[in-house]
Amino acid sequence: MSNPKEIKRRILSIESVIKTTEAMKMISIVKLRKHKGLLKSAKTYYDHIELLLSDFFLTEKKENFEIKKYFLEEGQNSILIIFTSNRGLCGSFNSSIFEKINFFFQKNISLHHNECMFFSVGKKGFDFLSKKYGIHEKNNNWIDWENNFSKVCENTRFLTKKLIFNFIKRNFSSIYLIYNNLKNSLFQETIIEKLLPINVGNFKEKRKRIDYIIEPSKKEVFHYLIPKFISSKLLKIFLESSVTEHTLRMISMHKATENAHDIKNNLVLNYNKERQTSITKEILEIISGLESLKK
């Protein structure tokens, strides 16, 4: 590139990119701090619900029909709930989810995607499912969960009721969750987890068995705990996914800003070289003109 004006125009363009990426980085930092606080509270609540449910399983026999129906996997139809973002520029956050979906069907050869119902939390997941599996909005609704946390809780409770109702009616046999969990700032793990039917092996015996007095009845307590357990788990996973998303976007925008600064420095260096070359050329022309006048 030898045109100083073109180099100057590119420098101004890169400066605009730097301002944008720095602003997006700061927004992600603010959202990350907020969602980390919410996740801490959600984890505390979920741990207590899980502890109560594990105690209930220790005191109640699984042969009880009210409990047994939550452990049975009948039929072939399944539902996959995937947690993606509404926007891009967050590294491999969404692509790792899509790879995990393909891996899920490769691993479960007997299960075809036509036998599954998809539910996407996030626009990116809905767009992927629409293109890949021909899922349309009439049988798949993505939820635009943004900054309104009360709306998040309301949608979680509504989704929990629908899932429990359809599972009890045997409209589908199992529910899988696919989401990203941040192990540390440099490593994310994409997890496939079965939500229903319940796997008792996931409940660790944290206390010694105690014969509790349950009021008003075991049946009512169980039907109260199950929706609380599922909704708190969905909320916890949503917040874990959100924390991972904003962390990866913050890292991506930080790297983008650094790369933009490197490009700008190279352009400034080239601009100075071209400017110096043009000044030297003009000086030589002046000198040669003076020499011709002397002759």
Rank of each mutant, 00 (worst) to 15 (best):
residue 281 K to M: 15
residue 129 L to V: 09
residue 220 E to N: 09
residue 184 N to R: 02
residue 52 L to I: 11
residue 168 I to P: 03
residue 126 F to M: 14
residue 31 K to P: 09
residue 201 G to V: 12
residue 193 E to C: 07
residue 110 S to V: 04
residue 196 L to M: 08
residue 201 G to P: 05
residue 53 L to I: 10
residue 178 I to F: 01
residue 246 H to Q: 06
residue 147 N to M: 13
residue 163 L to A: 00
residue 33 R to Q: 03
residue 251 I to R: 15
residue 269 L to F: 05
residue 182 L to I: 10
residue 228 K to W: 09
residue 274 E to F: 06
residue 198 I to S: 02
residue 289 G to K: 12
residue 230 I to D: 15
residue 254 H to N: 13
residue 273 K to W: 05
residue 54 S to N: 06
residue 12 L to Q: 12
residue 259 N to P: 02
residue 33 R to Y: 04
residue 16 S to D: 06
residue 143 I to V: 12
residue 122 G to A: 03
residue 25 K to H: 10
residue 180 N to S: 14
residue 134 G to T: 14
residue 178 I to S: 04
residue 106 Q to N: 15
residue 170 R to D: 01
residue 245 E to K: 14
residue 70 Y to E: 00
residue 231 S to W: 02
residue 269 L to C: 14
residue 264 K to A: 01
residue 157 R to L: 14
residue 180 N to E: 13
residue 3 N to Q: 04
residue 282 E to I: 03
residue 103 F to E: 12
residue 188 Q to C: 11
residue 229 F to G: 01
residue 228 K to Q: 13
residue 75 G to D: 08
residue 271 Y to K: 09
residue 50 E to M: 05
residue 262 D to M: 07
residue 32 L to K: 13
residue 66 E to R: 08
residue 72 L to N: 11
residue 164 I to W: 08
residue 97 I to R: 14
residue 103 F to K: 12
residue 182 L to K: 11
residue 17 V to A: 13
residue 75 G to C: 05
residue 212 Y to L: 00
residue 287 I to H: 11
residue 235 L to Y: 01
residue 28 S to F: 15
residue 53 L to V: 06
residue 282 E to G: 10
residue 76 Q to G: 00
residue 46 Y to F: 13
residue 78 S to G: 08
residue 35 H to M: 14
residue 147 N to Q: 13
residue 128 F to P: 00
residue 52 L to E: 13
residue 88 G to L: 10
